[in-house]
Write a protein that binds this DNA or RNA. Structure first.
Lengths: 339, 339
DNA sequence: CTGAAAGCGCTTACAG
DNA sequence: CTGAAAGCGCTTACAG
């Protein structure tokens, strides 16, 4: 395959057609794999395509097809938090990629933090750059999903939206998982069970806390609560605070594995043995859980499946299907040595 | 602002124009901020835009302008490695974002791992979805940048490309930095100076190793080398191996802070004190360096600046300017307590 | 300062 | 199975 002068005049369908001695329509059919083309014509066109190094102009194509074959995944966090220790995002991205790759769609990752970038992403999607958008890690009542959906853009979000929106979402049984954890602690005879909750502007933070509360209430125990932000550091801090608040606590349910690791550090520094003095249960079942000392009992949530499911639902939606408003993925308790 | 039926018929410039009682051309001028429009006309158009919730169709627009105002940043790593502990990527992304945000360009992040995704990204760029692409974290002699450049797509990469390509790049003085580190160790009287190098299919890995070698040669010492892959774990492993190879070593230059942290763990486990028994110098000066015990002496590379510079150079290139083939950013030694 | 018209590069009924 | 033609939604000389 020879290319023209570097960077000069990209070839158009027109030039492919004329080189192959056919009409633009026929060239287009070949390029798009239409079966109704005579074999020798097809070959001539294909040869012209490769001689010229032709690649269709996407703007022109999507102007008529009204499709782009690209899907956006919006992460509403700063780069610093998105790309952090926490394997949550990478795993979501991986799950999404798998499904999109298989469907021949291009994944476009966008980060939103500033109001300006929020606006730009909105314009990007409304402007028709993508066929649909997934939004992960929402804080508070993010208006973005609703805005996009109202514009007719297929949207699926991760986590039941806080606030009034009715966009479809994929979530896990957060409250159930928390109950599982607390029930396990109660069942093994723990008396004073604290929790380190996640950020209360995120649905995962809220729902795991309410699950904890509900289960404690059912077993007639009082709650002791500290709030973290899903980082390891905040886990350490929160644990210290809990210990100061009530030195007699003998168990803690932590809303993420990373925070649990941080909490275990605080416990060690305070001279408490895990699980002998204080039992610890995490949430996520990420790889970290197998590397803590002792290995962490935790609530497994299928993060990769969240990604896969979001992508699949979005693809269905973009394909014109009607999808359920909520898809709930199960959580389960994985017992190791920390509780 | 009222919206039509949800998801129905997006408004076009045509509808804006007719509602405002002007021609499509004039409506276009207002939308694009042309100054040559009478104030009362401008207002009428703006009102129509907001009444209708009009957003320009990007495909149509870029079909005629030949621009998209989007720029891709391609990360040639799996999601797992891109979003890992290593703050390298997030920092690059942040730097790039700053510059692109200020220029009103949308950043599109793409991950490349499989051959399929490699192809898809190529088609995406050649298909005209973006005005330019940055490639970070290249392994081996990646053909992607060259391919894109030959197609006339503005390309800037991070790190001097291995292999024959002549695409413009932004890099840091890797070898110089390594020499600085080794010279510091020599200067403080260390005799047996080992190194943990980075992956040898990445230019950072190669150049830091050759800097180490060159400086040792100048000071008449023999080299002792182990290779890691920039992860913490590989640093631990490599350090163990070095210790086994030569128990008498009294210093080690490690090609990344993360690996240095891993190496310090191995030293601790082997009962060696840092810096008393073994001096350790890292590379990066990421936040980690201030949190190790003892704090890490390291070679600072301005990661955020790499991102900023890549973006700036790409913007210039896309703007039709000619840019230097290489932009080299300086490294400097930051002395803390580990050496 | 404004409008009529051409044209960006494709796809897709519609005929044949 | 193939081609002529319309049209996707914009921008931008060119006149006036």
């Amino acid at each position: 395959m020879s290319l023209g002068a570097p960077g000069r005049e990209r070839p158009t369908l027109e030039s492919v057609a004329s080189r192959a001695g056919v009409s633009r329509a026929t060239a287009s059919r070949v390029v798009n794999g239409s079966p109704t083309v005579a074999p020798h014509i097809r070959e001539a066109v294909l040869r012209a395509v490769s001689d010229l190094g032709y690649v269709p102009n996407q703007a022109a194509r999507s102007l008529v097809t009204q499709r782009t074959d690209s899907i956006a995944l919006v992460l509403t966090e700063s780069a610093g938090r998105v790309f952090s220790d926490d394997p949550f995002f990478p795993t979501i991205v991986q799950g999404v990629s798998q499904v999109l790759d298989a469907a021949g769609k291009q994944l476009v990752l966008m980060m939103v933090n500033s109001a300006a970038s929020h606006d730009r992403v909105e314009q990007y999607a409304i402007g028709g750059h993508v066929d649909g958008v997934m939004v992960a890690s929402m804080h508070g009542a993010d208006p973005l999903p609703g805005t996009l959906a109202r514009r007719g853009i297929p949207v699926v979000v991760n986590g039941r939206p806080l606030g009034g929106t009715t966009v479809p979402y994929v979530d896990v049984a957060n409250a159930d998982g928390a109950r599982l954890a607390v029930r396990h602690l109660v069942g093994s005879g723990r008396r004073r069970i604290a929790t380190i909750a996640g950020p209360q502007d995120m649905v995962g933070g809220v729902d795991r806390l309410s699950g904890y509360r509900a289960e404690l209430r059912d077993s007639d125990r009082r709650s002791i609560i500290a709030i973290g932000d899903f980082t390891r550091e905040s886990g350490t801090e929160a644990m210290r605070q809990l210990l100061a608040d009530d030195p007699s606590l003998d168990a803690v349910f932590v809303a993420s594995d990373l925070m649990a690791e941080g909490a275990m550090r605080a416990l060690r520094q305070a001279g408490r043995r895990v699980p002998d003095d204080v039992a610890v249960v995490g949430f996520d079942d990420t790889e970290i859980a197998r590397y803590t000392e002792p290995p962490l009992t935790t609530v497994r949530q299928p993060i990769m499946d969240i990604g896969r499911t979001m992508a699949r639902q979005l693809l269905r939606l973009a394909g014109g299907e009607t999808i359920e408003r909520a898809t709930l993925l199960p959580t389960e308790l994985v017992v190791r040595e920390s509780a």
